[in-house]
């Protein structure tokens, strides 16, 4: 019995040592986390300052008077308002059509048998390695030849036809579902589209939603493609181009509070989506790494 006790106490000694280590590690990790988040808090603080405070030679951290009206004023700027509208016009149709085409293709690649399937899939997969910088010049020429440069379509069309990483991920996801489901449904007289729509789409719902969120973040935050395709037509600027425009204007007439207010606004949709769905988003990101 005495032996048992001493065993228990050595176990406790070890665990207190581990506990101390854990406390130190926790403190360090939280200090690091504060360093990570602090710039973004500073962004919010700056959005609530006066212009004078943001360009003062003595550093200002906390605004003397919180300029909440900055968040109202920004909407009276038609550039900003247009930017929000344009970003939505690009993101919503791309996602709705693109999720349909991508999930349909993922279903076909995962569950149907047809000649050339693997070749087609490898072709699509290989495009993931091609940098956008390499195809932006010919795409720009193509869109200008067909007269689409003064529209938002160059930003919508390619994505609406499907996104290979979404297809790839959904296909992986469907691999675990038995193909006998297709055969059973065929015997019941279902057509292939109905099998996709009534059986497999509901099965993909969760992972499709996660992929859609990640894709939305990509579209919403994209800068190079909008700059190439609509960079010369100011009324078509997406939100990211508007922020960049504010930043360039800032060199002549400094207005950091305006830039920061617009930036905070532009980050709200992605941050809200992230906070609400973070478990699924992080799981999906982690999974893509583990499955590679």
């Amino acid at each position: 019995m005495a032996k048992d006790k001493s065993n228990g106490s050595t176990g406790e000694v070890l665990s207190t040592k581990a506990k101390v280590a854990n406390v130190i590690i926790t403190v360090l990790l939280f200090l690091g986390a504060i360093v990570m988040v602090f710039p973004l808090i500073y962004m919010i603080l700056m959005s609530l300052m006066t212009i004078r405070e943001t360009i003062s030679t003595t550093f200002v951290l906390i605004p003397e008077e919180w300029q909440w009206h900055n968040y109202v004023d920004i909407f009276s700027d038609s550039q900003f308002y247009n930017g929000v509208v344009n970003s939505v016009i690009v993101a919503v149709p791309t996602l709705i059509i693109g999720c349909f085409t991508s999930s349909l293709a993922a279903f076909a690649f995962a569950k149907l048998r047809f000649r050339g399937k693997n070749v087609f899939f490898m072709c699509l997969l290989a495009t993931m390695m091609i940098p956008f910088a390499s195809i932006m010049i010919p795409q720009y020429v193509m869109f200008s030849k067909v007269g689409l440069l003064n529209t938002l379509l160059p930003l919508i069309l390619p994505g609406a036809l499907g996104n290979i990483s979404v297809i790839f991920f959904l296909r992986q996801n469907l691999a675990g579902i038995p193909s006998t489901l297709v055969e059973a449904a065929l015997i019941d007289g279902c057509g292939y589209f109905k099998i996709y729509y009534a059986i497999f789409l509901p099965l993909m719902k969760g992972s499709l939603a996660t992929q859609a969120i990640l894709w939305f973040m990509g579209i919403w935050n994209d800068y190079l493609a909008p700059q190439v395709f609509v960079g010369r037509t100011q009324r078509l600027y997406t939100l990211q181009l508007v922020i960049m425009k504010y930043f360039e204007d800032n060199a002549t007439v400094a207005n950091y509070p305006k830039i920061m207010t617009a930036s905070v606004f532009s980050m709200l949709p992605t941050l809200i989506l992230f906070f609400v769905f973070q478990r699924f988003i992080i799981e999906s990101v982690a999974l893509s790494g583990i499955k590679g």
Binding site: P39, M43, M217, W220, Q240, A262, M267, T270, L271
Partner: peptide, 14 residues
């Protein structure tokens, strides 16, 4: 993870 989902343009300007 928050910086990862933040807009690259916005945080670059920041």
């Amino acid at each position: 993870y928050v910086p990862v989902v933040s807009s690259l343009v916005a945080v670059s300007v920041l």
